Computed example of a mutant assay.
Amino acid sequence: MNILGIDFEDWFHPQLIQRYLDGKKRTPTVINGLDKILDFLRIKNVYATFFVVGELLEYKPEILDKIINQGHEIGFHTMHHTRLDEPNFKEKFQEEIIKFANLTEKRSRGFRAPTFSLNYQSSWAIEMLVNNGYSYDSSIMPVKTSMYGFTNSEIKPYKITSKSLEKNDPEGELIEFPLLVGKLLGRTVPTSGGFYIRFLPLSVIKKSIIEYEKMRIPSTFYIHSWELTPEFMPKISMSIKDRFITYHNLKNTLSRMDELLKKFEFTSFSRYIQKYNL
Rank of each mutant, 00 (worst) to 15 (best):
L261F: 15
I97Y: 02
Y59P: 02
S146M: 10
A113S: 02
R109Q: 04
R107D: 08
V189R: 03
I17C: 15
K90T: 08
L118V: 12
F232A: 05
L21V: 09
F50W: 00
E213A: 12
E95S: 07
K263S: 04
K144V: 06
L228D: 06
G182K: 06
M233E: 11
K241A: 13
K235F: 14
G193I: 12
S108N: 00
E96W: 08
S138T: 13
Q274G: 09
Y47E: 01
M257D: 04
I98Q: 11
I197E: 12
E231G: 04
P61G: 07
S219F: 00
I63D: 01
L228M: 09
T104M: 00
T188M: 02
G5P: 06
K36A: 08
I160V: 15
I205P: 00
K144R: 04
I63T: 01
G33K: 08
Q121I: 07
L179D: 03
Q70K: 05
S219G: 05
A48H: 10
E86R: 14
L84S: 08
T49R: 00
E58R: 14
M257L: 15
K206A: 10
Q18H: 03
G110W: 05
A125R: 05
Y136C: 04
E259L: 13
Q70Y: 09
S239D: 10
I43D: 15
F111V: 13
S219Q: 06
E265N: 03
H80S: 14
T161S: 14
I245D: 11
R271H: 08
L180P: 07
K144T: 06
E154H: 02
R112P: 05
L4P: 00
A101W: 03
K66Q: 02
I74N: 00
P178H: 15
G133M: 04
K99V: 12
Y136K: 04
S122I: 11
N252H: 14
L56Y: 03
H13W: 12
M233D: 03
N88G: 05
P28T: 10
D169K: 01
T220R: 06
Q18Y: 03
F266I: 04
I98K: 12
E173W: 13
N277G: 12
R42W: 06
L165H: 11
R19V: 12
K25F: 14
S153L: 07
K99W: 02
D35I: 10
K66V: 00
L278M: 10
F12D: 00
L56P: 09
F89C: 07
Y148P: 03
F100T: 02
S164R: 06
N152D: 14
Y276L: 05
S117F: 01
P142T: 00
P142C: 00
